[in-house]
Structures are given as C-alpha cells and as structure tokens.
Design a protein around this nucleic acid. Structure first.
Length: 487
RNA sequence: GGCCCCGUCGUCUAGUGGCCUAGGACUCUGGCUUCUCAAGUCAGCUACGAGGGUUCGAAUCCCUUCGGGGCUACCA
C-alpha cells in the first residue's frame, strides 16, 4: 500500500457553515484548491454539519454559492457527487455510529455517564488546583453495577475515546515535527448523549473513508490533531496511511486579533456586493501566508495552481489589509477587456437603478466604460461615475453648486455655451479645441478653473470622468441644456 | 495556569551563513504629468522583538528572555 505522499493527492475543504463563509475560510479553500490543482489531484468539498444547532441549510447553500463564484471548482462534493459520498456529514450518521460501536467493542472507547455539571465541577477544581484540565477518567472502567445504577437514574451516556499513555508526534508540512504528551490530551467525546457524532469522530472517519491524503486547514485545529490520529489508530489505519497535515496560519484583523465583524468585513458575500472581483480576492488572499517569491505579486488563478506549493506557506499569521485588496482589485479591473468589464459592470448599474436594461443604454454604457476603467478600485463605483449620463431629472450636487455661483463662473458658462452652440461635429476633440479657444485663450483662464465650471454644470459634480469625453457621450443637446440651466 | 504554535519596514512579504550598509508590494509623504478624480512615473520615510552564544562572518544555527496567538466543550 503506497503511503500518503505517493498516492494520488486528495485534498479536502471541510467548512462548518455556521455563518457566511469568511475571509479565513476562503483562504483555506483557496490553498486546498490550488494544492489539488498543482499536483493534479482531487479537490474535495465536504460540509461538516454535525452541529445542526448552528449549521443551517441557508449557510450551506451560501457556502456552495460562494465557492462557485470564486471559481474554486470541486471534483467531489455537494451537487457534483463523487465515489465517496455523501459529502454532507449529516447524511453519514450511520457510518459514524458503526465506527463508534466498533470502538466501544474494541475497548478503544467507553460510555461516560458524567453530567455536564459534574464535568464542570471537575474542571473548576482542576483550575483552582492549577493542574492540567481535562476529563478525569472517572467512567473509564465502570463496573456493571455502577453502569446499572446510572442507567436506572435515566442517565444517557456519551461515547468517549480512551487516550492511552504516551505521546503523539506528527510531521506538519509547515511547522515540522509537533508532539503532544497524552497527559495533556484528555479522553474526548466522540458521540453525544443523543447519539449524534462530534467533529472529532466525523472528521477522522471521513478523511480516512474519503481517502484524503492532505489536510490543509487552519492552525486552530493543530492541537486537535492528536485526537484525530487517535481515531485513525482505533480504525486500524496504519501510520503510513495517515493523511499529511499542514496547518495554515491565521488571517488576523487589523488590530491583530482574530478577524471578525469588529475589525473588518469578513463575509465574502460582502466583498462580492462591494464590487470586488473574485480573481482579485483570490490573488490577495493567496498572498496572505504564501508567496511565489521573486517579488511576484500579480498572480492569476491559473498561475496560482502552477506556482502553489505547501513548502512556501508561512508559519506566522497575517493581517488582513483592505487597502491592499483594493489596490489589487483596481489593477485587476484595469486589466479587464472591455467585454469582461462590461459584463461585470452591468449588474452593478442595474442594481443601483442607473439603467433599466435597454439596448440604447447598453450601447452608451459600452462607450462610457473605457473612460472610467482606470479610475475605479471597485465595481460599486461605476454607478456613481456614470449616473450623470442616464439620470432624467438632472441636478448639480449641492457641494459643487456653490462653486459655480460666482460671476466668473457665469461668464465661463456663458462663453462655453456660445462657443459650443456653433459646433456641429460633436466629438470630444472638437469640443476640447472649441472650449480651449473660448475659455483659455478668450478669457485667459487657467484650464482647471475654466473646465471646472463646465464640468460641474454638465456632470453635476466637481469630480467626474474626463470632461470632453463625458460631453461627447452625453450628447450635444443635453450638454447645452445643462450649461444653460446652470446660468 | 497548562499544552502547542508563532516573531524581518505601519501591513503583506523576499531572504535557508558571506550576493543584505536587508529587496519588492500596499499604505503614507513629496515631485513630475495634468481639464477634476484617478491612472502613470520619480523620490523619500520606516524593519531583522531583546540578550547571550557558535563562526573569520548571522536576519539566517543554538540557548534564554520578552511579546502575540490558538487550544484547554456533549463547537468546529
């Protein structure tokens, strides 16, 4: 039997969707995916919903949707199936029950009748006595009589795994050898009193049964690895068949605490709505805890699969920096072809109700996009910048309005109106040359002063896309109307 | 408290004993460009947590220390 490093690579992403997938989850998913693709192996998507109190169908659906949106296509998992399914743990309950029964029969696990209150009391005592906390092993070797008494009391037992004396050592692909003395790994629960399995049981059983070869996951799971390995042993899996572990460093918030709502947006759905491109999110996230070296930072999805190796993953945590994500997003937007940019822009324009979806609008949008492409960092800025082209009841922003109330501005607008009235070829080139002659040469004004007033009158704001192109797009009639209205 | 992990510019990182008076990117500051805003471009600021070793030579190896984080559930 070939060992884990020789078998076909099978990597799984196994979130427990107790909310929207967040930045940290996705970084893990991205690395899992990239590693599978890099090695030509399989990317498996599994839902860990053993805690049905917290995992809902909505969150599961959202997780599936998010992964799809990001382009992290899975080879096995929800909706696509696969040879080792089902891929929802809630649909594998009988499998876990069978193994638990087997462990019980083998003596690897035992029934524990301790109540939550009793366990808490033990922990409390351990805390004050300053000794290692954990289950005290009270039910490890219960006599038949003692069991009968508990049963008579109506107590429902949990199934608890027996940790033998000794220690567990494993090689983490990122951190090297890590070992834990079993004195600090207490007997742990596999099955709840109601018969439902816990993560510790399900994760190990599934990884073995789904023939997972590499477990790349968050470092918060590092200290649960000995428990997972203990289950492998009880299952009869030999060490050379264990999956290889790689514990990824955390993605932290700005204030160096775990990323959460408090210190930055975490939900990927939020980034989607805010106009971030999936490839930008992936590119940025890839740089958190990993780097291709050689001062490279711009990485496409394809390049990521070519360059990604676990060896180049860091062991130290990274802070999430929205500013850098934004910068990368802007770069990605600028490198979009017009067609790509157009299809991504459309939903944002429609959602903002700037356009309704007519053919005429589509044409104007297509002509307008090139002049704003290099001016935005997120797609959500598009409606703001293009609104002036579509609005029916046009008005100038109050802030800008005050800037064209003075005599000089009126004079500028009047001159512009006069000069522009005679223009027949309404192209940005001729608009510009006519205005330069009339305002710069004619009135002797600085360009920023002269064009500023026209800009406000025509676009409604002192910040806008390039003036002459904007006027060309707006059309002669509407442009002149707006200048007139501003007088 | 115990166990485990981690420690290079503000942030993400390059760096695996000499190529490092530490490179790139983002941010920030200033300049150029310029019809606004951007984009582009040039320049600048700022880092090997600290202390000991090992070595001709250390960001790179060892030890100690300090700091940060995770786990310590019938959560994952």
């Amino acid at each position: 039997m070939p060992n884990s490093s020789q078998r076909e690579v099978r990597v799984r992403f196994a979130p427990s969707p107790t909310g929207d997938l967040h930045v940290g989850n996705i970084r893990t998913a991205l690395f899992d995916w990239a590693y599978a693709r890099h090695t030509g192996g399989k990317f498996i998507f599994r839902i860990e919903d053993t805690d049905r109190e917290r995992v809902t169908d909505e969150y599961i659906a959202a997780a599936i949707d998010t992964l799809r949106w990001l382009g992290l296509q899975w080879d096995e998992g929800p909706e696509v199936g696969g040879p080792y399914g089902p891929y929802l743990q809630s649909q594998r309950l009988e499998i876990y029950a069978e193994w638990a029964t087997k462990f019980l029969a083998q003596g690897d696990a035992y029934h524990c009748y301790c109540s939550a209150a009793e366990l808490e009391a033990v922990r409390e005592a351990q805390r004050s006595a300053n000794v290692a906390p954990g289950y005290d092993g009270k039910c490890r070797n219960l006599s038949a009589e003692a069991i009968a008494v508990y049963e008579a009391e109506g107590r429902k037992p949990v199934v608890r795994m027996r940790m033998p004396e000794g220690s567990t050592t494993f090689t983490d692909l990122i951190r090297g050898d890590v070992s834990f003395e079993h004195d600090f790994v207490p007997d742990f629960v596999l099955v709840r009193a109601d018969g439902s399995p816990l993560y510790t049981l399900a994760v190990a059983v599934d990884d073995v049964m789904m023939k997972v070869t590499h477990v790349l996951r968050g470092e918060d799971l590092l200290s649960s690895t000995p428990r997972q390995i203990r289950v492998y042993q009880a299952m009869g899996v030999t060490p050379d068949e264990y999956p290889l572990f790689a514990h990824l460093p955390f993605v932290m918030g700005q204030d160096n605490t775990k990323l959460s709502k408090r210190n930055g947006e975490v939900s990927i759905a939020w980034y989607r709505d805010a106009g971030y491109l999936p490839e930008a999110i992936c590119n940025y996230l890839a740089l958190l805890g990993w780097s291709p070296g050689e001062d490279r930072e711009d990485v496409s999805m394809k390049e990521l699969t070519e360059l990604f190796t676990v060896e180049r993953v860091h062991s130290s945590p990274a802070r999430f920096d929205m500013k850098k994500l934004e910068a990368i997003n802007g770069d990605k937007i600028r490198s979009l072809t017009l067609d790509e940019f157009y299809s991504r822009a459309l939903p944002f324009l429609q959602r903002a109700e700037v356009i309704t979806g007519t053919v005429a609008e589509a044409d104007l949008v297509k002509r307008a996009l090139p002049i704003i492409q290099e001016r935005i960092a997120t797609l959500s800025e598009i409606p703001l910048m293009l609104k002036f082209l579509f609005v029916t009841n046009f008005s100038v922003e109050p802030d800008s309005q005050t800037k064209i109330q003075d005599e000089q501005s009126k004079k500028v607008l009047q001159s512009a109106l006069d000069a522009l009235s005679g223009v027949s070829d309404w192209s940005h080139e001729s608009i510009e040359s006519v205005l330069r002659v009339a305002l710069i040469e004619g009135l002797g004004l600085k360009p920023r002063i002269a064009f500023g007033a026209v800009r406000i009158a025509v676009t409604g704001s002192h910040i806008s896309p390039p003036l002459f192109e904007s006027m060309e797009l707006l059309g002669r009639e509407r442009s002149l109307e707006r200048i007139k209205a501003a007088l």
